[in-house]
Amino acid sequence: MSSTRTATLTLWFCLTCLVGFGMFVMKNKVQSLEKELAQINETIKDDVKTIHVLNAEWSHLNSPERLRELAAKHIALNPVQAEQIINYSALPFDYESDESNRRIAAQKNISNKAEQNRLKKMARAQR
């Protein structure tokens, strides 16, 4: 047995061992990672379930019927009536004269341009 051959064999043997060991370590690591992943997935599943339950509860607590009851009990608010809403364009301003079309429009609370023009004409005719 020549020394070259011995050296080659030893090299190959060492390489095989190294690769084998490397693979073993890697495999081991992958396994532990996969275990961790499975655990995390399990936790995610649990969390998803919990979120689902909480969402359902949120929806239940937010049901309009319940909110209405609570609002009636704790705050003194009523449904909005149309006369509580006014257009900005219809707001009367003090610096305008009594007969200005804005005043008339404001009194009638009309935002419609055509209607305002009609009123404008009417005011002009009156004058």
Binding site: L37, N41, V48, H52, V53, S59
Partner: peptide, 25 residues
Amino acid sequence: ALPENPIKRADILDRNGTIIATSLP
């Protein structure tokens, strides 16, 4: 990798996203 959704039947929502029907585990 995603885990399978543990809830099999999908929710039903209204136009604002309020839950109308849902499944509990």
